[in-house]
Design a protein around this nucleic acid. Structure first.
Length: 476
RNA sequence: GGCCUUAUCGUCUAAUGGUUAGGACAUCACCCUCUCACGGUGGGAAUCGGGGUUCGAAUCCCCGUAAGGUCACCA
């Protein structure tokens, strides 16, 4: 068997605020590909623009990934052979970017650029007026100064040509020489640009597969030019399709009002459901199974089945998936989740045995635990806590309550479960008209026009309470 | 605007030159039913348009159209 190259993928976000689902989906794909191949998944923080950095973002990124079950083999907290994994620290502690910059300068592939902002603006304006794209390389100084702190360093395009490369999703891609330009490698503040820093780190960390959105396609020729200048083997490029905002067809992003992924946690979605949904946005294993666990998705995942076109986010399908995942939860996990979301409500006061009986009924109407919390808050299940307020009007008829009471009395306490209650009452109800018997029964037990069926309710509140409420109804 | 890319039901997608174009979400109808739900059964719904190539095209090619991305000392 030929030795497969160890797969190394990375997710490299900037700490500029929360992570929306588009960011997260890229992380999911990269993580899946690493796990699928028993490879390595790296989390690297690209904080080379200090002005845009938002306090607490790194923590937020880590929390989001952890919530979704995305673990990293190398990165913040866990370390690794290429530590540190935060670019600003890599620059200060290792000086890696300087090292590569020197290599490029020595090879004649980089030069210091003392052009001022005003000059740049003038050039750009001129280009615009003559309806041509502005290319810095056309203004390249003939005698650049020596590179020293405070002056930006530019890449020097030496091999001006049409660039062709292979993308695992899109096949052969190509771009004309007009997109190649002398771009900034190191900014005047001493920090490398993303364009340079990510290349250096991907090389240093041995990243084999680069998964990212289509917004980087147009920069590819410039990245490839750097690889060629350094004479370094290129990784496999994988372009993930964009996620479009619901309803519209705009790429999802903070500007389009995309929300924080952790909001889904707060709203009571299961991480496995959101993971499942996002993995299937722009990717599909081809079979007919759509509800999959994280392990199943790892097994089924294949970058070659990634979609090319953008995919619209769809709340309804996510809600459905969440419900399906809720149903697949073990009783123990379900109970823990429900308790977590109802801990500060009246329901937290009921006994464990009643809670257990109520559990299946609680999740019947909801897609998320957040909805459940809301229902509990609205008093949806108050009938299990205390006797309901009922009115003469809504009960319709009390004629058959005495009959019901005598039937219920005969059911043994230890077999007082929904199906036994139903079979004991069913014939009587059928004989007298089910609506005449069942509606008053259900209403007197719950005080609600809409609720679970009366047999389930009787089971939940117990025999004694059932009889008490029926007798109370009779007193009307 | 230049450049790059994409295009199957309303939405997510299957189909790698030959299928009655399949599934899922949503929707509609019916069944179940004391209510609201759950559930069950079934229906409607798509290859962007136009040209080629081919015995045969959703699939390959060209031209349109529409959409997305990108043109920073942002990432």
């Amino acid at each position: 068997m030929s030795k497969m190259e160890n797969v190394v993928t990375r997710f490299a976000p900037s700490p500029t605020g929360f992570m929306h689902v588009g960011n997260v989906r890229t992380a999911i794909f990269a993580w899946l590909w690493a796990r699928k191949n028993n490879g390595t998944f790296i989390l690297r923080i690209e904080d080379t623009d200090k002005r845009r950095e938002v306090e607490g973002s790194i923590d937020h990124i880590k929390r989001t990934l952890k919530w979704l079950g995305i673990d990293w083999d190398q990165g913040p907290d866990v370390g690794g052979p290429f530590a540190p994994y935060i670019q600003s620290e890599r620059m200060k502690q290792l000086g890696v970017y300087k090292k590569y910059a020197d290599r490029l300068i020595k090879g004649g592939f980089a030069y210091a650029d003392a052009t001022t902002e005003e000059e740049l603006n003038t050039y750009r304006k001129q280009a615009e007026e003559s309806k041509k794209a502005f290319l810095f390389r056309e203004r390249r100084p003939t005698n650049p100064p020596e590179w020293k702190p405070g002056i930006p360093l530019r890449f020097k395009v030496v091999d001006l040509k049409r660039t062709t490369w292979h993308d695992a999703v899109r096949g052969e891609l190509t771009a004309g020489q007009e997109v190649l330009d002398d771009f900034i490698l190191i900014k005047s503040d001493g920090f490398p640009t993303y364009n340079f820093a990510h290349l250096v780190d991907d090389i240093e960390m041995g990243v084999t597969h680069i998964i990212r959105g289509q917004e980087f396609i147009s920069s590819m020729p410039n990245y490839i030019a750097v690889y060629e200048a350094l004479n370094i083997k290129q990784p496999v490029y994988i372009t993930a399709p964009p996620i479009m905002g619901e309803g519209g067809n705009k790429k999802m992003g903070k500007r389009e009002g995309a929300k924080d992924t952790l909001d889904y946690m707060r709203e009571g979605y299961l991480p496995e459901a959101l993971f499942n949904f996002l993995a299937f946005l722009g990717w599909n294993p081809g079979g007919e199974q759509e509800i999959m666990s994280q392990e199943e998705i790892v097994t089924a995942f294949d970058i070659h089945k990634l979609q090319k076109a953008g995919a619209q986010f769809n709340d309804e399908k996510l809600a459905w998936m969440n419900k399906e995942h809720i149903r697949r939860l073990s009783t123990e996990d379900l109970k823990a989740k429900v308790k977590e979301f109802t801990e500060k409500t009246q329901l937290s006061k009921i006994s464990d045995s009643v809670f257990d009986k109520l559990l299946p009924v609680m999740i019947e109407h909801v897609d998320t635990f957040g909805e459940l919390r809301e229902q509990v808050g609205n008093g949806e299940f108050d009938y299990v806590i205390h006797e309901p307020q009922i009115t003469r009007d809504l009960i319709k008829t009390t004629d058959f309550i005495p009959g019901l009471i005598s039937i219920v009395e005969k059911i043994e306490e230890n077999v007082f479960i929904a199906e036994n209650i139903k079979s004991a009452i069913w014939d009587f109800a059928t004989e007298k008209g089910r609506g005449n018997v069942l509606w008053p029964m259900r209403y007197s037990l719950t005080g609600k026009e809409k609720s679970p069926d009366p047999f389930k309710v009787a089971f939940i509140i117990g025999k004694e309470e059932t009889l008490k409420r029926l007798r109370n109804a009779l007193s009307l």
